[in-house]
Design a protein around this nucleic acid. Structure first.
Lengths: 154, 154
DNA sequence: CTTATTTCTTAATCTAAGTTAATAGATACT
DNA sequence: AGTATCTATTAACTTAGATTAAGAAATAAG
């Protein structure tokens, strides 16, 4: 658990890196964000004083987010495996990582992309619930999902 | 930690209730969802076998989600305060609850509603970062945010 | 102070997705 | 089997928000 200071604009973590950390902000302001295929930024979270920010993923998985400083900041750097010692933490990390991916999807992907991601990630659920519920989960109208499926197989 | 069986269609939890539980699905399929002002359903999560589902909120706060069974199911009911015994769990619950609200916002609120919610929830951050970053966080174009602000104060 | 870079606003299109409505398939119900 | 309810499809129309582009404000930098 190191304490570091970083200047405005400095990058703490790049998407794709391993051994990502969790940062607790003592003073200043950090943010995390993703870049989509077109290079567009999507801000995932702001972390002002007393907030914690980090990829909600196990440390052995390449991270999804960039983290940088929007102001000169003073932060604690927390190693993820330390946190993991507590029981049941893995379950919380899993729930967080599912929600993190969901937010990124909702912010940066089109209806078609969200549907295709769902098909690949939860093929089982696709079979078990009515299509209008899939649409509701994806945040689109059932009519739109119907249209997407037709247009795709043409 | 009770074990219960529920029939397809049965409701386990209503939005607004206190002392919400966490459910671990042994068999069957549960889902959680919200209702917006127009009565429209927004599915937050599906929970098939071996998934855990529940409002990511402390048990003393009224819950936001409805939870019901999409298939006959066999589930463990977990009391939240038991989980809370572990250290640092409160921090995880906080991060989960922020993400849960974020997903609900992205799925069910218009750009204007998302902005107004942000203004009320993070007035501090509003002052500290450029507007285009607020737009990026909200999932809208900076031009749209500019337009919304103008149209509102008319 | 002056120039350069970044941020914000405005307006004119354009498009993805919502809404409405009507029809057809499925499932369930008696 | 026959009616009712729920689910999926299709098409016409509407709309929220994206995109593009240009100019104005503001901030930073020499």
């Amino acid at each position: 658990m190191r304490r570091i200071t970083i200047k405005k604009g400095a990058l703490l973590q790049k998407s794709g890196e391993l051994d990502s950390k969790v940062y607790h902000v003592n003073s200043g302001l950090l943010r995390s964000y993703t870049l989509d295929e077109k290079g567009k930024e999507h801000i995932f979270m702001f972390a002002p004083e007393n907030w914690t920010i980090g990829d909600s993923l196990p440390p052995d998985v390449p991270c999804e987010l960039y983290i940088d400083a929007l102001e000169d900041s003073d932060v604690w750097v927390l190693q993820k495996d330390i946190q993991r010692e507590a029981p049941n933490i893995a379950a919380f990390i899993k729930r967080l990582s599912v929600l993190q991916k969901r937010v990124i999807m909702l912010m940066s992907a089109s209806a078609t992309e969200r549907f295709e991601h769902f098909e690949q990630t939860y093929p089982d659920i696709l079979q078990r619930v009515p299509q209008k519920m899939i649409a509701s989960y994806l945040g689109i109208a059932p009519e739109t999902l119907s249209k997407l499926k037709r247009e795709r197989h043409k």
